[in-house]
């Protein structure tokens, strides 16, 4: 018998509540998040103000557009759903058993846990973000429209689910390899680069393809949507591609879990 949606949702909301409390329990550690936005944007600020001394435009970005791009892209990429902290560890040390013997879906359970860790980051990043916006207020551009803000959130959420799925699947490799740190490090590096948080993707060679790959939804696409530099047709195309990726990857992640469990050898039997 399929359980009704409210009951299913309630159990994941309970995880969300508990995990949010958990993630905010260390006050000092939380304070360090304040610097997570300020430092990368400050580096980009010094880099790009130097570049723009000799030119007025880089690609289709003015200095203001470039700085706005970084404030938005860096903020969103810092907020991305990072699922890599303990799924593979729990497989390796056998504690995954405690989750597997309870009636929840392992994929969505960790998605909820991951989401819960995003809230405090948002909460802690916001003060730093507001200070940054205030300091750079004469350099930054406003959002293109209210619709652009909504579109930005939509594409970023879909991108977040996509990168979570990738990281979840990479973690599940622990069923085969036990340690996954190398894969996760590689994925993290690629995500940073392909999200456009390091360099706007349309300034790179091969940008026609780079802007269509799904990780662009984590930083590049939302920042461009904010700036009003993505047409509705381009936006829906990117969202559609992302949707197709998700339709393929989410069932694949479930299949991977089933396959992994089939060969699972936890420590101690």
């Amino acid at each position: 018998m399929t359980r009704c949606w409210p009951a299913t949702l309630r159990k994941y909301l309970a995880v969300l509540r508990l995990e949010t409390q958990y993630s905010m329990r260390y006050r000092l550690n939380s304070l360090f998040y304040l610097s997570a936005l300020v430092v990368p944007v400050a580096i980009q600020y010094f880099l790009w103000t130097t570049v723009y001394r000799s030119r007025a435009q880089v690609g289709d970005y003015s200095l203001s557009a470039m700085l706005t791009y970084y404030v938005v892209a860096v903020f969103l990429s810092q907020m991305r759903l990072v699922a890599w902290w303990d799924i593979s560890e729990s497989i390796k040390n056998g504690t995954v058993v405690h989750y597997l013997v309870r009636p929840w879906n392992h994929f969505w359970l960790y998605f909820t846990r991951t989401l819960a860790w995003t809230f405090p980051i948002l909460f802690l990043l916001l003060p730093g973000y507001l200070i940054l916006v205030f300091v750079l207020r004469h350099r930054l551009l406003p959002p293109a429209s209210a619709g652009a803000l909504a579109a930005l959130i939509l594409i970023w959420l879909a991108g977040g689910l996509f990168v979570y799925t990738l990281e979840y699947m990479t973690n599940l490799l622990a069923f085969w390899t036990e340690r996954t740190r190398g894969f996760l490090w590689l994925l993290s590096f690629l995500t940073s680069f392909l999200s456009g948080a390091l360099v706007p993707l349309n300034l790179l060679p091969g940008h026609r393809w780079l802007v269509l790959q799904p990780l662009a939804a984590l930083g590049y696409l939302p920042a461009r949507v904010y700036l009003g530099q993505v047409s509705p047709a381009e936006f829906w195309k990117a969202l559609g591609i992302l949707g197709l990726w998700l339709l393929a990857l989410v069932p694949l992640a479930h299949l991977q879990l089933r396959r992994g469990l089939r060969r699972y050898q936890p420590p101690g039997g």
């Binding site: 309630r10 159990k11 909301l13 309970a14 995880v15 509540r17 508990l18 995990e19 409390q21 958990y22 329990r25 729990s90 504690t95 405690h98 989750y99 309870r102 009636p103 929840w104």
Partner: peptide, 19 residues
């Protein structure tokens, strides 16, 4: 696993909703 730094009641409440 889920509530090491939290209280047993936090864990029990989670299980209430889970089941």
């Amino acid at each position: 696993e889920v509530a090491w730094d939290l209280t047993p009641m936090d864990g029990f409440r989670l299980l209430k909703d889970l089941y």
